[in-house]
Design a protein around this nucleic acid. Structure first.
Lengths: 229, 229
DNA sequence: CCAAAAGTGTTATCATTACACCCATGC
DNA sequence: GCATGGGTGTAATGATAACACTTTTGG
């Protein structure tokens, strides 16, 4: 076997760090934990862990995410490999980052508590360990870029949502505001939303229709790509 | 030091593989080498190597690229981390891929020969080792996406070029054809091209003006992003 | 009856596409 | 003088952006 050929080369620790986004109706949020090991124990950090030899890096990311949130089959995408020499003072660790989109209310509160996890508004992040701030920044840019071309924003919303919630989400992601009429028209013209009879009546007297999205058309657009913003 | 904390975790070999794009006036090309070590020795492969402990992953990529092409300060961007368990039969190797854009005529012919490197048209690739075909595919998609929003295509052209060469490049990247008038208008409207007095007279009797690009405006657009295609 | 959010159309501007002829030159 | 690629403009269409009033209903 050729296995012997590789003996001479350096070996690295491989961390997987996850930027987990959520949306609570007001701002775009990231899920952070209190780091549980040295160095920098007790500081705020992205959820992460070390990859294991017998699993793929993608599987490691899924495992870490499941471990923290109790969620399986969530939207996740590899972001970037951070490989500077001194990035982790605890050792020569190369980190592969993933970003994930989850519905805040579906995550497992007990699991979150047991990791001392907390949602932070992206505009008010605490200071983070190592190069994690840079990771979050890159993830946010990538999210904006991705959302412009793919209808993945829905991954952050409850299954049924109002147009105003959807617009608030997009406004939070892009940190801007959109004209309600233009936004509604464009979104509806994609043909992936289905209006329910049911109305959300908490935030207004008139009530706003709930929408769900049509999974078939959604899948199609997700692969084809769209011009959304 | 916390270094001790990490002792228990698995360590990985880290490969860096480079998808090197070039353009020769006809088709988009990728630079491949004959693999020089087992397993799969003698098969076509991306240029790669193992990262070293005392260098960053980015530096490793730059080193590998310099080693093959003799070129420094070329356009390079991290692409993706390939981390499946069985991707390299020779061992548990995680590969970080980079894609690079070079001007074919500036690379060092002797270095290329000593690695048995050869340019292949992307539409006629030979079979490749491991998951390298997938890497090239992803790189091409990323290149298309990037070129749509950033004027990096110039990295593939000689310093001075004609509008027809530029159009041919874009047509090769997107595997389509554009209307000459519309293409010219859009490109010139970006304001990053400067026309020289000199003409290229080989491919026509009338001769076509050479253009160079304005580095200042280019840098500005590169960071801002543009709508190009 | 009124406050508060929901819902809905039109116009102007801009960007994109489609399309065809004259120009300059070397042979 | 003719064959070859170089260079240029306009009109139609579609997309985006700007803008304000009426509807509903709980209190």
């Amino acid at each position: 076997m050729g296995r012997i050929e590789y003996k001479q080369y350096d070996r690295f620790l491989l961390a997987v760090d996850c930027i987990i986004f959520g949306f609570d109706g007001t701002g775009l949020k990231a899920l952070l934990i209190k780091r549980g090991l040295e160095p920098e124990i007790g500081k705020w950090s992205l959820m992460g862990g070390f990859a294991k030899k017998e699993e793929s890096v993608d599987d490691a990311a899924a495992r870490i995410l499941l471990n923290l949130t109790g969620l399986d089959k969530i939207y996740m995408e590899q972001l970037h490999c951070f490989g500077d020499v001194g990035r982790d003072p605890g050792g020569r660790v190369v980190s592969i980052t993933y970003f994930a989109l989850i519905k805040i209310d579906e995550s497992d509160g007990h699991k979150l508590e047991s990791h001392n996890a907390k949602w932070f508004d992206l505009r008010k992040l605490p200071s983070l360990v190592f190069d994690h701030k840079q990771m979050v920044k890159l993830a946010k840019e990538r999210l904006q870029q991705k959302v412009s071309n793919h209808p993945i924003g829905f991954e952050l919303l409850p299954n049924k949502f109002t147009l105003q919630q959807l617009q608030a989400l997009y406004e939070a992601i892009f940190e801007t505001s959109f004209d309600k009429r233009n936004f509604t028209r464009k979104i509806l013209s994609l043909g992936i939303l289905q209006r329910l009879e049911e109305k959300e009546k908490e935030s207004s007297k008139k009530g706003a229709f709930y929408y769900v999205f049509d999974k078939k058309k959604y899948k199609q657009l997700e692969s084809e790509g769209i011009k959304l913003i």
